[in-house]
Amino acid sequence: MASKALHIVFTDDDILMEAVKALREKKIKINEVFCPFPVHGLDKALGIPHTRLAITSFLYGIVGLSVSIWLMNFIMIEDWPQNIGGKPSFSFIENMPSFVPIMFEMTVFFAAHLMVITFYMRSRLWPFKEAENPDVRSTDDKFVMEIIVNDDNIQDIAELVHENGASEIKLIENK
């Protein structure tokens, strides 16, 4: 089905925030906003739920810690226990203090890298990915808002954003 969208350009983050508030008051759904920098409070104003990436990072960290414990227990205690400089190496708990540095490093390694990979996957970012911002100025100093419209509400929405300081309003027809 062919859908129509308005691409509305704002020149300032403060104007954008005012417009977002005005649109949200009228219960108009804002489909996307492309910004050149993180506008603080915009996600809240748009009603976007908070990201759960920090939780994934915590879980990945637990995985890293478990992997490091398993790895060092297998290598140093089970597979080939050795007497190294008289240091106790015949039970995990006795040998554990010298495993702490690597337990920590692997926790951080897993927590950091897997979280970043999750972020890249969720936000669809990877090399050779084509950019999807509709206007090249949206990485410089313009803010582009996208609202899916239909023939009934298009003029009302356009008028509302125009009143709230939109500098350009364009109609995009998706096939």
């Binding site: 996307e32 906003v33 492309f34 910004c35 050149p36 920098f37 993180p38 506008v39 915009l42 996600d43 748009l46 976007i48 908070h50 990201t51 990436l53 920090a54 972020f119 890249y120 969720r122 936000s123 669809r124 970012l125 990877w126 090399p127 050779f128 990915k129 084509e130 950019a131 999807e132 911002n133 949206s138 990485t139």
Partner: peptide, 15 residues
Amino acid sequence: FGWSGRVKDWQRFEE
């Protein structure tokens, strides 16, 4: 990496 600057991307970016 095809960065587009969506609000959700920025929210995740900051987190």
